[in-house]
C-alpha cells in the first residue's frame, strides 16, 4: 500500500507536535464516491465506477485499497483513494471529476443483497 504525500506530511507535522505517531502509514482518509456498480452474469464480479480527480489534465486519484464486507443481507464496498499527482497540498487548483473503475470480487454471488458504501450510502446496481 502506498502512503500519499499529503497524508504523510500532515502526519509528520502532527507527530512533531504531539508525539503521538505510532505507525508510519495509515489508510488514506478519502473514500471514493461510488456512482454505479455493474454486476457480471455470474454475480461474483462487480465493476465499481467512482468519481476520481482530474487536475491539469492528469488523473490524480488511484485506488489505494479496497475493503469488501459481505453478510447475508448486504455487501459493503469501500474504495480508498490515494493522490498520485505531484504538487504542494497548499497549491490551489481547479480540477474536474473523472470516471474511474475498479473490479471487486465477491466470495458468494450477489443475489438480492443490497450494496452500500461504508458510510451507509446505497450504491446503484446495474445488471447489463
Amino acid at each position: 500500500m502506498k502512503c500519499h504525500r499529503s497524508s504523510a506530511l500532515r502526519l509528520a507535522m502532527v507527530a512533531t507536535l504531539t508525539g503521538l505517531l505510532t505507525a508510519g502509514c495509515v489508510h488514506s482518509e478519502r473514500l471514493a464516491v461510488i456512482t454505479e456498480a455493474v454486476i457480471s452474469p455470474d454475480e461474483r464480479t462487480v465493476s465499481v465506477t467512482f468519481t476520481g480527480d482530474r487536475i491539469d489534465g492528469k488523473v490524480c486519484t488511484a485506488v489505494d485499497d479496497t475493503e469488501v464486507t459481505e453478510t447475508a443481507q448486504r455487501v459493503t464496498i469501500g474504495i480508498h483513494l490515494a493522490n498520485v499527482c505531484e504538487g504542494s497540498p497548499t497549491e490551489l487548483v481547479a480540477g474536474t471529476g473523472v470516471e474511474q473503475t475498479v473490479q471487486i470480487h465477491l466470495t458468494a454471488p450477489l443475489g438480492d443483497r443490497v450494496v452500500e458504501m461504508p458510510d451507509g450510502q446505497s450504491i446503484t446496481i446495474r445488471r447489463p
Binding site: 500519499h4 493522490n83 497548499t90 490551489l92
Partner: peptide, 19 residues
C-alpha cells in the same frame, strides 16, 4: 471553481479551502 490540491478533511494545520 477550485480548492486546495489533495484536500480530504480539514485539520488544524490545513483547513479546507474553497474558491
Amino acid at each position: 471553481s477550485g480548492g486546495r490540491r489533495d484536500q480530504t478533511e480539514a485539520n488544524f494545520f490545513l483547513p479546507c479551502r474553497h474558491l
